[in-house]
């Protein structure tokens, strides 16, 4: 399976390198997309200095973690993110004709390397945020940071999967999923506690985005009430259970409606 994935990876890379100039320009364009978000944070903090006890560098770290996770998920799990097109062009029929799991096949079908632009931008912001010394480092904290990014990526993948599963039933009206995907990226730049207790609860128990930013961030900043906060990102992975089940339900529905 890893070998097959590697083969798909190579073929995607070769495909996208066919148009090198266009590729590079698109990467540069992508670089700019999140720059506006960075500028917004910068200018707002120039005016207000802190929000709910978080200062600029701390929010920046949160922004970078979420953006890194989102861009990684966009590169790797692009097939789920663009699933409406895969369904409407009948590509999914093709997947079902092959002796592989449709989920794995969807994973393999798109890899969007031009999103490296966004990833690079997120990486630079993170490097800057860390260089300000806002976090007092030790090995455990480095591990937690990594955990935040990995779990964040998988959580976004889960959200893309939910979106894709809806596509089996209808490809209309799915714009509301943007609340959690694009919205997760936009609003997740600030620790969710900023939006009030109820919203924080929603993003903890329903869509567990706060599990990969707010709680572990408190740990990184030595403000967590308990060291267990370091492991909260793992809780976000629970989201993958219902999203996978929903995907299965979707495939079953698709096979019986064929549309």
């Amino acid at each position: 399976m890893f070998k097959l994935y590697g083969k798909f990876f190579a073929i995607h890379l070769r495909s996208q390198m066919q148009y090198k100039t266009s590729f590079i320009l698109t990467v540069l364009g992508q670089c700019l997309t999140s720059f506006g978000a960075f500028l917004s944070i910068y200018f707002l903090f120039a005016r207000f200095h802190q929000v709910e006890g978080f200062v600029f560098q701390e929010v920046l770290l949160c922004h970078a973690v979420v953006l890194l996770s989102f861009s990684l998920a966009e590169i790797v799990f692009r097939g789920f993110d663009t699933f409406a097109g895969i369904i409407s062009r009948g590509e999914f029929d093709r997947f079902l004709l092959e002796p592989r799991s449709p989920m794995f096949r969807t994973l393999c079908t798109r890899m969007e390397f031009s999103r490296l632009g966004r990833l690079a931008e997120a990486g630079i912001v993170m490097a800057y945020a860390l260089s300000t010394g806002v976090v007092v480092w030790n090995w455990a904290k480095a591990g937690v940071l990594l955990l935040m990014i990995v779990c964040g990526t998988l959580l976004f993948a889960g959200l893309f999967t939910v979106y894709a599963s809806f596509c089996f039933f209808s490809i209309q009206g799915l714009e509301f999923m943007n609340i959690f995907t694009d919205g997760g990226r936009e609003f997740g730049q600030y620790p969710f506690t900023v939006y009030g207790r109820r919203i924080l609860r929603f993003f903890t128990y329903i869509i567990p985005l706060a599990c990969v930013q707010y709680y572990p961030l408190l740990y990184l900043l030595d403000r967590a009430p308990s060291p267990w906060y370091a492991l909260i990102p793992l809780g976000a992975l629970l989201f993958l259970v219902p999203s996978t089940l929903f995907w299965r339900l979707g495939v079953r529905h698709y096979k019986s409606s064929g549309s």
Binding site: H49, V51, E175, F176, N178, I179, Y190, V194, Y195, G196
Partner: peptide, 25 residues
């Protein structure tokens, strides 16, 4: 309908964010 829900949610969260800044200064 999907667009409506999205815009409503989006607007609401944005306002919550600015409310937090308003509280801070």
């Amino acid at each position: 309908l999907g667009g409506l829900v999205t815009q409503f949610f989006w607007g609401g969260l944005t306002i919550c964010l600015y409310a937090a800044f308003y509280r801070s200064d």
